[in-house]
Write a protein that binds this DNA or RNA. Structure first.
Ligand SMILES: [Mn+2]
Ligand SMILES: [Mn+2]
Ligand SMILES: [Zn+2]
Ligand SMILES: [Zn+2]
Lengths: 145, 145
DNA sequence: TTCTTAATTTATAATCATTATAATTTAATA
DNA sequence: TATTAAATTATAATGATTATAAATTAAGAA
């Protein structure tokens, strides 16, 4: 079910999109890091192996991957986008304390509203925000005697 | 149920927040325009009556109103925030063609996931994107003979 | 394998939303 | 009406993202 780099190579080749080293590295990063990274996260980490990498390339690659449907953009934060490999639909929870973005099981296709009978829905995002268990725990610690 | 400017005045006064002319105008704009406007929308329209209005004031006011819970910020778009008076929970649909943001009936409190049992959820946003009926109609027109 | 060339990457500048700063103005109270 | 802390304004600064143009490269042809 979960796609490998080889699967992605095949998909991009079928669309006549060149398999540049940079593009494959960005894809690999997203496949290996299911942390919903920002452009900066990706850029800083890939730079270790690719010192010549340009941030524009990371943007270009992510925009291209989004266009062909291989990656999904999260606008759960108001100042910075986050990215993930497109996968079975699920919801996202952002902890306002540690800033981590968690996946949670949810069939967003099941969310219905009669108001939308005549709308063509193409994307569905469910974003929750609050405190994650780790941060709730440490909150308690700090309020302990 | 739906609050008037007088209701808002009372709430702000109770919190010792000054009822400046600019703040009341921003609130009034949001009460009268249920269109999920951006800062620019609000700024451009209020400027007609308040030529000296500063965009920083619109930002300051909206941030303050969000902090006290009277307005809600939508991050449905990746480059610009949109605002609305806080109201009973509902979902948002953004038409990717005409850019309008529509409300739709949905009890977001009813969206549950066992994965979140130990999380403290404070905000819930449901964002759908696609084509609205008007844009679907005009699409059809343009494909007609 | 080497050559060719259009596509990609890079470095850099530009844009745009948002926030910060500091001087000016004002709401609320005495 | 006078006082003053808070709000507004003008402006600069920041930070994410996009645009541009020159240098590099992937992929097919020879
Ligand atoms: Mn996810
Ligand atoms: Mn709404
Ligand atoms: Zn946390
Ligand atoms: Zn539309």
């Amino acid at each position: 079910m979960t796609k490998t780099i080889e699967d992605f190579k095949k998909i991009l080749q079928e669309k006549n999109i060149r398999l540049s080293h940079q593009r494959l590295k960005v894809l690999e990063y997203l496949v290996q890091n299911k942390t919903h990274p920002s452009v900066d996260d990706i850029y800083i980490n890939l730079q270790k192996d690719l010192p010549s990498l340009s941030k524009a390339t990371v943007y270009n690659t992510l925009n291209m991957l989004e266009e062909v449907g291989l990656v999904n953009v999260l606008t759960i934060e108001d100042n910075e986008n986050h990215y993930e490999i497109t996968s079975k639909n699920h919801g996202h929870f952002k902890c306002t304390s540690c800033k981590k973005i968690y996946d949670f099981t949810l069939d967003v296709e099941e969310i219905k509203s009669t108001d939308l009978a005549d709308f063509e829905i193409k994307e569905r995002d469910v974003y929750f925000r609050g405190l994650c268990p780790e941060c709730l725990d440490s909150d308690q610690d700090s309020s302990d005697k």
